[in-house]
Simulated assay, not measured.
Amino acid sequence: MTKIDIISGFLGAGKTTLIKKLIEEAYNGEKLMLIENEFGEIGIDGGFLNNSGVEITEMNSGCICCSLVGDFGTALKDALAKYSPDRIIIEPSGVGKLSDVIKAVENIEHEVDIKLNSSVAVVDAIKCKMYMDNFGEFFNNQIESANTIILSRSQKLSEEKLELVVSQIRQHNSSAHIITTNWEEISGKQIVTAMERENLLEKELLAEEKEHHHDEECSCGHDHDHEHQHQHHDKECDCGHNHNHGHHHADEVFTSWGVETPKKYSKEEINEILKFLSETSDYGIILRAKGIIPCTEGGWINFDLVPGEYEVRIGVADYTGRLCVIGTNLDKDKIEQLFHI
């Protein structure tokens, strides 16, 4: 039987980083297949995973949860027949609805030998409240549909703010495991244990209870529901859309701009471009920008941008430079001019 793990997460949450960690630390010895689904014209993340020994199938013609729902079952059955993997990791588009991806898998469970093993939502702890307020139809759906919620960048929050984030998530999902520890402090196997709903601590405590023949109420005395002031990042979206009402496909709310280019950029130039995208609204509401591009000083540059911040680092070469921007009300002409395309 092939296990199916769906690892969702809103734009820039860290899905690919998590998947790499799980492949390296938890899925050793398994025959894996990764199915990626990028929203937009250019698939970026495949280049980060193509040296991991995992068969990657990128589907760029639309979100699994949108136009590919009907075709997804056929694609999955073909993949099973061709590769017979032990485990398939599905990485849906960041703007997809996890519930629809789950439904697509469940629709063919009776036809092929598969098991929906886990449904995960990777959540950027810093931006959780902002995304809940402004893109709830998509963001909250991922939280509500997940059996495990894995917080990224939790180490950047104070204990008080982290508790508030957990409380906000619990309002949408009261039963999911929530991983709050910094990923660098725990192993991939520990994460998979939570994803597969095996709570080792719970098992140990139950064994102790059985051994000592007692069943007591919790007496810790803590009030776990705290209310705190909103974080600085809890901003209202000014894109003009009401994202929390009605039913939309991702391509009705989000737009993308992407190109492949051999153009070289300097680090200074990329930092300046990302500063413009991050600090002004001249180019639309930018939710995510990502690139793998050759550098004028030699080597390659990788960059990531999410609202309010960005990172530029040295990366590995790819077959050509690739740039992608996702957001709402994008002015694609201005973005092209900004990148000198």
Rank of each mutant, 00 (worst) to 15 (best):
I273Q: 01
A289I: 05
H241L: 12
H224M: 13
Y283G: 04
E216C: 09
G299W: 05
T261W: 04
G298K: 11
H241T: 02
K290S: 00
G258T: 08
H222I: 15
I286G: 04
E217I: 05
G221P: 02
H232E: 14
W257R: 01
G246E: 09
G298E: 14
H228D: 10
G299P: 04
E297Q: 12
H243T: 03
D251M: 08
N244M: 08
I270R: 02
V259A: 11
G321H: 00
E297A: 14
G284V: 01
E272P: 00
G240V: 02
K264W: 02
L274N: 03
L277Q: 02
H233C: 07
I273Y: 01
C220Y: 07
N244Y: 02
D318Y: 00
S281F: 04
I301F: 05
K263V: 13
E227A: 12
D282V: 03
H248V: 06
P307I: 08
N242Q: 12
G298S: 15
D318R: 03
I292S: 00
G246A: 12
H212E: 07
Q231E: 13
S256Q: 01
D251H: 09
I314D: 12
D282K: 06
L305T: 00
Q231M: 12
D225E: 13
E217F: 11
D234W: 00
E309Q: 15
C220G: 07
D304K: 05
H222T: 11
G258D: 05
K290N: 04
E272S: 13
K235L: 11
T320F: 02
N244C: 09
Q231I: 09
G321L: 02
K263N: 11
L274G: 03
D318M: 11
